[in-house]
């Protein structure tokens, strides 16, 4: 087990180096560079940079250096000083832009993922053990509806319902009067009253798909001989179902839990935009639209790192849960 984890962790390192290099290359891809953009910005304000000035600045910022040197400067700034560069669009350090939204992003996404699992696993197991029953059909209909309705549409509908029937103020995560207020009990209540819409929206979309996956996995597993063996030991249906086939049917969930990490970070961009959530998703969208290179590049880097780390976490969890992987 330890050997397996060490091996997987060591393999992650070259992957991370490669991924970070690709991210840097992507940042460099758009024509022009930081100075070009800066000059354009100045021109917008009615000032001009001469060719000589631009060249001097390029020299100063090291933009004429070979790409490997520039890459090293960029990655060592990130690694040793946590400095992701400067956002042209926001005129602020990228790191502070991202970190200030990260907390809420993680909170909303983790919450919706937990809800997704709480809904999807029991419903999937129920639908499989009571195949073709009334509730199985109901959950199937619900599943396809949930999968078919776009998240942003569901968000709009819930906002409309919340606004017209429950007389709530919707959108964002806090009512305007609490935005800059200190954290009090009332503020937390206010946060919760806003939080349910994104959580419900994200959880239903995710759960709808996972219910189908869980049901199919369970149906596969329940037909296997070891399940009959378990019944033949005198275990009750509940002990058998939750102790044996569910354990195996969860494997695909476990092997994809790591992908939740990057998904948590990018969030559901469109839903977040519709709901006006101060999460990282809309920031990424904005950065891509405005060609805000350092911001977008940092996003790509962080997403990639999360993917690599998430896959590592998945592999370790899977090895922990399935001996066939542990000892393979």
């Amino acid at each position: 087990m330890v050997g397996y984890i060490t091996k997987r962790a060591l393999w992650a390192i070259p992957t991370l180096v490669f991924v970070s290099f690709i991210s840097f290359v992507i940042i460099q891809l758009p024509p022009g560079d930081y100075i070009t953009a800066y000059a354009a910005q100045l021109r917008h304000g009615g000032e001009y940079l001469t060719e000589a000035q631009e060249a001097a600045m390029r020299q100063q910022y090291g933009l004429n250096d070979p790409i490997l040197v520039q890459y090293w400067r960029w990655i060592s700034n990130i690694l040793f000083r946590g400095d992701f560069g400067h956002s042209l669009e926001w005129n602020a350090p990228v790191s502070s832009l991202i970190w200030e939204r990260l907390g809420l992003t993680l909170a909303i996404s983790t919450l919706s993922m937990v809800f997704t699992w709480i809904i999807a696993i029991p419903v999937g197991v129920y639908a499989a053990t009571r195949q073709y029953s009334l509730f199985d059909y109901l959950f199937t209909v619900f599943g396809f509806l949930g999968k078919g309705i776009p998240d942003f549409l569901l968000a709009l509908i819930l906002m409309w319902l919340g606004f017209t029937w429950l007389n709530m103020d919707v959108g964002g995560l806090l009512s305007p009067r609490y935005e800059s207020a200190p954290w009090t009990f009332d503020k937390v209540l206010n946060l919760l009253s806003h939080l349910w819409i994104p959580v419900v929206v994200l959880a239903t979309g995710g759960a709808a798909g996972l219910i189908r996956v869980m049901r199919a996995n369970m149906l596969d597993e329940m037909g296997k001989p070891y399940v009959e063996t378990a019944y033949a030991q005198g275990l009750s249906e509940r002990q058998v179902v939750w102790g044996y086939p569910v354990r195996v049917a969860l494997n695909p969930f476990i092997s994809t839990v790591g992908w939740a990490l990057p998904a948590l970070f990018s969030g559901d961009v469109i839903t977040a935009v519709v709901l006006n959530l101060p999460t990282t998703g809309p920031l990424l969208l904005q950065a891509l639209k405005m060609q805000d290179m350092y911001l977008a590049g940092s996003f790509i880097l962080i997403l990639s790192v999360f993917t690599v780390v998430g896959t590592l976490v998945s592999d370790v969890l899977l090895a922990w849960s399935d001996p066939r992987i542990r000892y393979a």
Partner: peptide, 20 residues
């Protein structure tokens, strides 16, 4: 009775035991 008074062995030893 199952497991307690009547034991049962199955045909496929490869798949009749829980893999996990």
């Amino acid at each position: 009775l199952r497991g307690g008074h009547i034991g049962m062995i199955f045909q496929e030893p490869m798949t009749a035991l829980s893999p996990v």
